[in-house]
């Protein structure tokens, strides 16, 4: 059998298996999988032994195919979803600071939330958005949503739906326009923030649903940032937290915290240390810590086990890679004399 035929056979098998599982899901005769704690530990030990075996092979001079690395990272991400073990999450000072800031707000305070990201960053930022909105709505904080990215308000809408689906939030009978509002997207990047410092309505004359700004009771009397008690920015790049700090915080004195993708987070810690940001949620870890603090476990907590396993596998492969480098006999060549 040719290689192409084998590949087609494997894809076909995966397709047939997927159809069976999907029909099982729709028909209700296949449910969610869950390993018992004992099986989970056996799986972890097997992965560990496989990694040790690969290290030994590498030390003997047998190099690995790069696809083995991908396979193990995939296993490290997928298997923890089915494991019944929990992971300890430690609260970092930046997350605690954000939580304390929110706790200090009296009920009825107006919180501006800017959704500056799109679906590619949703796995990291959506858990933060959902838990943040859920916390605000449960604690009677009035939420004003906006976005500097075109798809931000759509992400906000999804997060709002998730937060409003919580039975405790439903009991509060919250009303759109009174307890929360989505002002939608406005093009113009940091210039939008600058104009909002003088007049928010000039940038958002209508909300996401098309209602006039002055017809919405929640924002009718919100003229500019001086009427906002706290702001939270969910950012995946430009425009994002940096622009909010430069314009809204440093020029208009807006009190603000942020939730960032992990790529961005290291640059934002400087703003926290300088007192320009009041708290920071960095990546999925930040989301999980915030969920733990608020007592509202969500996707962040659920994803953390996979995140930790994947990191351990990556570290293992960094060690294996270095072992391969050291045992391959490569010597440092003087400059200009390398082949």
């Amino acid at each position: 059998m040719s290689e192409r035929a084998k590949e087609i056979l494997v894809v076909g098998l995966i397709l047939i298996l997927s159809i069976i599982v999907y029909l099982g899901k729709v028909g209700g005769w296949i449910g969610a999988l869950a390993f018992s704690p004992a099986v989970s530990i056996v799986v972890i030990i097997l992965i560990f032994l496989a990694l040790v075996w690969m290290l030994v092979r590498t030390l003997r001079g047998q190099l690995l195919d790069r696809r083995i690395v991908f396979l193990f990272v995939a296993l490290a991400v997928v298997l923890p979803f089915f494991m019944s073990i929990t992971q300890e999450i430690k609260i970092s000072p930046e997350v605690q600071q954000l939580y304390d800031a929110l706790e200090s707000l009296p009920p009825g305070s107006k919180v501006l939330v800017s959704f500056d990201y799109d679906p590619p960053s949703a796995p990291e930022l959506q858990p933060m958005a959902e838990s943040f909105l859920r916390y605000c709505l449960l604690n009677d904080l009035k939420v004003i949503i906006m976005g500097l990215w075109p798809q931000g308000p759509q992400q906000a809408d999804l997060a709002l739906q998730a937060a409003l689906a919580d039975p405790r939030v439903q009991q509060k009978n919250l009303e759109y326009g009174v307890d929360y509002v989505n002002l939608g997207f406005q093009a113009g990047n940091e210039f939008v923030i600058q104009r909002m410092g003088a007049n928010i309505e000039s940038m958002f004359p209508r909300d996401y649903t098309g209602s006039a700004y002055r017809d919405l009771p929640l924002v009718r009397n919100v003229k500019n940032f001086s009427n906002i008690d706290y702001a939270f920015n969910l950012s995946a790049g430009y425009p994002g937290t940096q622009e909010w700090v430069q314009v809204a915080v440093d020029r208009y004195g807006l009190w603000m915290g942020a939730g960032n993708t992990a790529v961005q987070a290291p640059m934002m810690y400087a703003y926290v240390n300088a007192g320009q940001l009041e708290g920071l949620l960095g990546g999925m870890n930040g989301a999980a810590e915030f969920e733990l603090l608020t007592g509202l476990p969500g996707k962040g907590t659920k994803y953390m086990l996979s995140q930790s396993f994947a990191h351990m596998v990556v570290i293992a492969f960094v060690i294996i890679g270095n072992a391969a480098f050291l045992t391959s006999g490569r010597k440092k060549q003087p400059l200009g004399q390398g082949k």
Partner: peptide, 11 residues
């Protein structure tokens, strides 16, 4: 942090 971010997307 970059690795963490990319893993999050995969997750």
């Amino acid at each position: 942090y970059t690795v963490m971010s990319r893993m999050s997307l995969l997750i």
